[in-house]
Each structure stands twice: as C-alpha cells, then as structure tokens.
Write a protein that binds this DNA or RNA. Structure first.
Lengths: 224, 224
DNA sequence: GGTGCGAATTGACCCAGATCAAGAGCGACC
DNA sequence: GGTCGCTCTTGATCTGGGTCAATTCGCACC
C-alpha cells in the first residue's frame, strides 16, 4: 500500500534510523503501529507511566510541562522525523512533560517495553539512542542559552530562521502550530509574539502572509 | 594510598557507576587519571574537540555558554559525583559549552576515545550512558520550565532548597561558587540574586551567614 | 594592623515585555 | 449568508528585574 510505503520511507530518512541501521530498526518497528490524530489530541499526560516511544511522521507535537506553582509552557516542539520521549521510556519513569498534537499528526507508536528490550539486546540501537539523547540535550542547552541571553526579537528571529531552508537563504516559514504554542516554546506571551512579528515586518525582515511569514534574507534575520 | 581509596569510593557511589556495574567501570577507568585544579581553571573551551569525559570528585564546575550575539551564561552547575560532558564526547563534536572550575576541584579525566571504544563494546556501559543522558535531559527540561514560569524569587528558592538535605528539611545551603556564577545559572544578574536573598531573609525564610544562608523550613521555601 | 583589590551588597532609575482590555479575522455549522 | 466561537492582532498601562553607580565587605599580602 502506498501509504505504508511512504511511512517506511520517512522512518528510513530519520537520523535515528540512520544511526541504528536497518537491522536494528526492523526489530524495533515490528510491533509498532501508526496513528492519525487530529490537532489538539493529547498523546500522553505529564506524570503517566511511559507506554510508548513516539516517532513523528507528519505534523508537529509540543511537549508541554506544568510548573510547580501552576501555569504551563511548551518545552519543545518536534517536527516530522523526530523521536520522543526517550528519557521517560528509558528510565521507566513517568513522563516529565505532556505531549499534544499542535497540528494534525501521523505518529508511529513503539511499545515502551519492546524498545527497552531491544535496547538491552542491541548495541547498534543503544548507540543510536545515546546519539539521539545527546542531540536532544544539546537542543535544550541551546534553548536555555537563548532564553537567558537573547531578547524576544532575537528569539523569534532565530526560530523563524530555523524554519526556512538554509541553502535557499529565504522563503516562507510556515507556522501551522497555534500562535500560543509557538509563543510558549519561545518563552513569551502570544501578544508579544504577535507584536514582534509586526515589528520585524516594519523593519523589512519579513512579509506576513496567510501561509506564514515570508523571510527575505535568512542571515540578516539571525545576525542583528 | 588513602587518597586513592577515597577517590575510588566516591566514583563507586556515583549513579553512573551503579548503572554501569563494577566490571564495565574497571575497564573504563583504567587509563583515566585525576587532577586537582584551582578555582577559575578552564577545563575546556566551547568549540574545542572533546578530549575527555569528566567525572567530578570534589568541588563544582559550571558549564558556560556564549550566546551568538555575545554575552555568556552558565547553563548548569555540576557537583561531586557528576559526569560531564557526555554528548560532545559521544557525538565526536566540539564542546557546546565551556567548563570552568567554580571552586577548587578534583576531577577524574577519562580519555574520550577510550570512552567511545568501551561504549561500542559494552552494553552495560551503553545502558548507563543512556540513563545518564536521560537524567541530564530532564535536568535541562526542568531548567527551561523554571526559567519560563517561575519568578526570580521562586527560582532562587528552588535552587537553595536543592542544596539542603531533603530529610532534615532545614540546614545551611553552602554556596561556595561565586555569586555571579549562581546568578548566571539562575538566569538573573548578581545584583538581583543579592536583593532576592535579602528579601527572603526579611521574609524569615532564611538567615544569611558567612558559610552561606541557613534555611529554616525547606518546604516553606519551595511552596509559596 | 593596615591597605589594596575584587567580590558582594545596596540604592536610584529605567525599560522590555507582561497584563488587561478591546477589536478584527476567519472558519464551521446551521 | 449570517452568527457563533475561535484565534490572532492591536492598544494602553504596569511592573519585575535589568542597568549603572556608589558603598561596603572580606581577605590576601605587605
């Protein structure tokens, strides 16, 4: 079937698959299944035992965490091809954040116990997981630095820049996720995000369109 | 020799050692060596190739990162028994942050290539590394949530609470690191940290002494 | 026991971004 | 095609924490 073909092709392209190799992945994926879920679906809730490792095939999901004094943020937004949430699965601990579909998504569900079993048996898979976690740690370090050192405008600019192709150096940065989610990911209010996009437009850095803002010059956006 | 005895005993108590098991650790530690370094020493610089995995035996080190628009922060402060910076070692990539001794330190240096070799050979070590990275990822998630949702006072309170023993519920939170480092870790200026400590003192939450602030009631500090 | 110097505290002021409160689009569904 | 219920944007105001400057503290070294 065509749909299953593309699914496998997408899985194959993910960096995790590359690192683990086809053999290990075959074993891993055998009892997994895909789900098609509408925007807004909660994949799992903060505090639940981890039952699945997720590989996102299409759309984006947000990892949402509650602070202890109340209030929630989005800690990370994952796109197609990315895997979450390995730490909870590995440590057999409750999920630290909840996960919510920010758009309609297609996601591959890998049973947690099966993943742990394969992990204990396969060095290749283990190695790929180490690399995955390393990359994810670096993402979070990057975000912490961003939050601590950069202004709202710089954070928005960096976020948009990561959404336009690096080689083209320009293009339309689609923002299919709700504004509130993006604002939370960037550590600001939706109002401030909106104002900042408006400010970037008057500065000529982008043009706001229906399918998201169009960036004129990617490098000019980041460096200033 | 007594000193080597205690070194090994400390290594043995670290969670990473527990997870990896004595056999794997024996192999890992064979070509490692310890160093005694004064406060202010730079262990490695952001952008250098990773040459060592570090296990901190005594003192504290700060992971310091530069933002791309200039300015630096401290992303994390590690204490005795903790391992850093596995991601750079694993990925054979340059260190993302620099590391600086915030106090006098004793640190075990594990050659990077040796670590990677053992990692590729030992499932136990691999598994321990996966768990280590998972815990470190969670630490960073926690910090991101803290930065996004909590006020300066709440962040300082949480930080102090983690420095007093949980069972006692009170005690002296030694702050041997320079104030500027702690402030950077918490995403604020040294001035604000100072003022916040003063404010917590007038509220009766702590008493400031020479060997760091003494917390009267740990749980009152966190929950308010 | 000065005395010199960097780190920590305190004080006065200011500003980026939050908050509160209207509007403006924009689909979905009758 | 209207109108209900969104999300998004814009406007006005407020405030937490940053900035800059002046002490004061702690302590190594003479």
């Amino acid at each position: 079937m065509g749909k299953r073909e593309t699914t496998y092709a997408m899985v194959e392209r993910s960096p995790f698959f590359q690192a683990a190799g086809a053999a290990a992945m075959q074993d891993l994926l055998q009892p997994s299944f895909t789900q098609l879920l509408p925007k807004g679906t909660v994949l799992f809730e903060q505090g639940e035992e981890a039952e699945f490792l997720h590989l996102l095939l299409e759309g984006s999901v947000g990892l949402q965490a509650k602070g202890d004094q109340g209030g929630t943020t989005i800690v990370e937004i994952f796109g197609a091809g990315e895997i979450f949430v390995a730490p909870a699965v590995v440590l057999r601990l409750p999920y630290l954040p909840s996960a919510m579909a920010l758009t309609e998504i297609r996601v591959l569900m890998i049973p947690a116990q099966h993943f742990r079993d394969r992990l204990a048996a396969s060095l290749d898979l283990s190695r790929a997981t180490v690399e995955l976690l390393s990359r994810h740690w670096r993402l979070m370090v990057d975000q912490v630095v961003d939050l601590k050192l950069n202004s709202v405008e710089a954070r928005v600019s960096r976020f948009l820049a990561r959404r336009v192709s690096e080689e083209a150096g320009a293009g339309c940065a689609a923002l299919p996720e709700p504004r509130a989610a993006i604002a939370a990911r960037l550590g600001m209010t939706p109002e401030t995000l909106s104002r900042t996009l408006a400010a970037l437009e008057t500065k000529g850095r982008l043009r706001r369109g229906a399918r998201g803002p169009t960036v004129r010059d990617r490098s000019a956006l980041v460096h200033s």
